[in-house]
Design a binder for these strands. Sequence first.
RNA 1: GGCCCCAUCGUCUAGCCUGGUCCAGGACACCAGGUUUUCAUCCUGGUAACGCGGGUUCAAAUCCCGCUGGGGUCACCA
Length: 562
Amino acid sequence: MSTETITRFAPSPTGHLHIGGARTALLCWAYAKGKGGRFLLRIEDTDQQRSSEASTRGILEDLAWLGIDWDEGPALEFGGKTLGGDPRGVGPFFQAQRLEIYNEYIRRLIEQGKAYPAFETPEELEAKRKEAIEAKVGYKYDRAALSIPQDERIARIDAGEDHVVRLLMPDEAITVHDQILGDVTVKPEEFDDFIIRKRDGFPTYHLAVTVDDALMGVTCVVRGQEHLINTPRHIAIQRALGFPTPEYGHLPLIFNQDGSKMSKRDKDKAAKKAVRDGKMEHSPISEIGHEDFAGWLKDKTRQLPADRLKELAGVLAIELPEIEVEDFRAAGYLPSAINNYLALLGWNPKTKNADGTDLEHFDIKYLAEHFDFRGVGSGPSKFDRVKLLSFNADAIAALSDDGFAHEWHAWATRHDAALAERFSLDDMKMLAPAVKTRCKTLRDGRKVVGFALLADDAVEFDGKAVHKAIIKGEGKGLELLEAFGKELGSLEAFDPDSIEEFVNAFAERHGVGMGKVAQPVRVAVTGVAVSPPLGQTLAILGRDSVVERIARCVEFAAGQSA
RNA sequence: GGCCCCAUCGUCUAGCCUGGUCCAGGACACCAGGUUUUCAUCCUGGUAACGCGGGUUCAAAUCCCGCUGGGGUCACCA
């Protein structure tokens, strides 16, 4: 028996990776890596209705993008590396492909009298459950099927009657030794004989997870606290099957600022609110019929397909809240910032920096080297988007100019085709020092350089800005601006440094301060009073464009002051 | 509702295990200054918390009990 630490992340493929799932995966990964062990990935696709292959692929890519690489599991080519594989031969890693395995163990349990078939229909059970609720007593399966004689069971199964299999729960308290919460004991009356195989022949989560964890040699299960109450069930299965019980660590949950659960539905919620606020009664998108639209709007639980929702948000001019890893990626967050924030949300390194402040910024390598359950908080935490944004800004600021340019370019290529087309990687390198400190996300970059995306004759001059910088003061600004446009011809190189130098010399020559020159020029080429430093602002436009814009502005200002 | 988990600034948290060094430290946000050709960055300072009530003790944010509050879970979902 190896003492190697093996952890696993086991998502069900029902959509993109949720940010909470990403944190679980990250901490799981860190624990295994810190111990020199392995981290494996398993896809829990036993829910035939909701699972999809596209989701699996999406989740794999989300994890890979974050840099959470798995040693074993579904294979994925990413960034020139192959992730996953099955070096120990414990796969397959898709539960739907492991049905015979589960059935074998279920068969054993039945044989040993530790599990039994039950023939009630879902409807019958639902009725009983309802009765129990009305009588204000907790519902528990009544074990009616347990008293069916063995030969009758066999006859009914042979006759093809639909049935489920239930585990015979032992009549004893079960204690979970949780690494984070300590010992949690649950009394036997809290459990009933839960189902381990569904009517469709698929195992339930409880059975599959327990069998797989044991067969895959998982030594430590790290998962969300919502699973805490399931753990005694899993321990019961382990005991019935003679499996060892792994270590457990149940992570506190993550919530929205308002205390509600972070859910994919939040996106629909935001869109619905915008529709109502806008008093919109008809679907603004042709693909969504009126009926569907009205129904969706009325029903809190109804969700639009992801791409439709995105389209709708575009029409409504709103930004949907980021919930899934892919959302954060599209919004221009860096993996390092997401990982850092996620890790800190729930785990604390309890370490001081040299200046006495708490250590908050670290990378996943540091996390892997220092992660332990002691540093995991026990209470639920709220997801603070503002702080994550600040972490992202820090991560961007920490990038080298070239590093930033590469990230920005890669992002634009994937999420903002127009931007990627207008700016080459070299353009972005030139812009980097100016843009870096002005954006908290890669998406913000567009706002910073938006003026360069406009055609020269499409620049709209902000009247106030023109007045303040150019017209006010007896037209001194206008004079300088005209002179600047003319003298610009003598500037040889048109790069940021040369331009800055030129502006300095120009100001000195005309006996005025920098501001007296910079602001009129800034307003002339961008239309507004705010832009990156003049060097980059002019360089990205190019000489012709600058001259053209100045001329247009001079004309505009002359018209205004007349 | 039953069972389970949790409880320090608005938020994330350090401190709690091994009571005194804590009229509680850091970060984000916020407010006020400063640097700067605009904006942003950056720098300096500030506001702000131990949920309540009982114990134990010379001494409690720290230990115990109760209350309150928040959350999870009670599926042929995972």
